[in-house]
């Protein structure tokens, strides 16, 4: 499946500014952001359409479903790698995230070169 994935990154976050910041950092690495989504449904639709190699997934999303729901669906239909970005460290939430075998989990606040380092590692691990 991975050979059919596009060399781009999907950013999912319901906060525009955060999504924007993440996008800047991704582009700063020389990668292409193939879209940003604020809801689980949008995220799944975009992922199906763009087939990104990597998804940056926020846990809390607007509308129905959270980051894990979206990630599970994307994992099933597309097979992208997912890096969760969450403000939560609650055990219940961590357990849900681990259902999806995430490539990495980043905790907000994500700072400085933290994101870039993790993205580089994840992509290199392919």
């Amino acid at each position: 499946m991975s050979d059919r994935l596009q060399d781009c990154v999907l950013v999912v976050d319901d906060e525009f500014l955060i999504a924007q910041t993440l996008s800047i950092q991704i582009e700063d690495m020389g990668l292409i952001v193939c879209g940003t989504a604020a809801t689980a449904a949008d995220a799944i639709a975009l992922a199906k359409a763009q087939r990104p190699r990597l998804v940056l997934m926020d846990m809390r999303l607007k509308g129905v479903g959270d980051g894990v729901d979206a990630a599970l669906a994307i994992h099933e239909f597309v097979g992208s790698k997912v890096i969760f970005i969450t403000a939560s460290r609650e055990p219940a939430m961590l357990e849900r995230m681990n259902q999806d075998h995430p490539a990495a989990i980043l905790y907000k606040p994500v700072f400085g070169r933290q994101l870039q380092t993790v993205v580089r590692e994840v992509l290199a691990a392919e």
Partner: peptide, 18 residues
């Protein structure tokens, strides 16, 4: 509250970075 504070700080961080 903590979640919102963190999120807001992340937003501030984004704004500052931009």
């Amino acid at each position: 509250v903590y979640h919102r504070v963190k999120n807001n700080l992340q937003i501030i961080d984004g704004l500052v970075m931009m």
